[in-house]
Design a binder for these strands. Sequence first.
DNA 1: GAATGGCATTCAAGAATTCGAATATACGGA
DNA 2: TCCGTATATTCGAATTCTTGAATGCCATTC
Lengths: 113, 113
Amino acid sequence: MIDLERKRELYRLQAELCQTLADPTRLELLELLSEGPRPVKALVRATGQRQAKISQHLAVMRQRGIVVAERMGTEMHYSLADPRILEACRITREMLVDRLRRQHALAEVAQGE
Amino acid sequence: MIDLERKRELYRLQAELCQTLADPTRLELLELLSEGPRPVKALVRATGQRQAKISQHLAVMRQRGIVVAERMGTEMHYSLADPRILEACRITREMLVDRLRRQHALAEVAQGE
DNA sequence: GAATGGCATTCAAGAATTCGAATATACGGA
DNA sequence: TCCGTATATTCGAATTCTTGAATGCCATTC
């Protein structure tokens, strides 16, 4: 079962990736970066969060290879390392939205009784 | 910006979902359940982990609505609540595999120099 | 070269997660 | 009803994550 070891290693890496996505601020940053490269300043403005916090989250995502950074004069421009991440995010969001809709419908029915 | 609030709430839920996926054992369980409903016993056997640990992880995923459980006599059969989760997992795994491949290719080049 | 704007890092505290050990519960059969 | 198999829960310790506060660093401009 040497193949199982390889699978387990992949599960570990995948878990690490999911862990990196498991933060609302980071998900919002990814969504903002889906529009294209953005300087930190713009991300701070758009999220309304403290600059240090945004930098910390960007650093985490940079370490894990989810975003890449490039210096543009005095600014740092961040962008997505692999746009496929957006597809994964889209799917999970769809699942959530559907679930919320079902819950809502259920609440309506309960209301009507 | 009432809409922003709604978005943020969705990001929170999405982060919670990602958090739930952020564990190698749970990812392995989801993969096993992709084949169809399975009793806990089978999952314990397939993973080689302690029964309590598997039950704990299943409980977490049940609470978050990722899997559903049904009693079959003395056994509990678990299954995926929404198969779309597999699609999201597949995408992230593909990203990882590609990254590993690139790293491997890079190592080859470095080797050759 | 001092000041400023833009970003990163460090540190510490609090919260959350993971896991093993022990224990509890549920069901079916004798 | 007692037992064994199957599964769940509780508890405590160790580890990890998140964030604010403070501070550091780099490039540009004056």
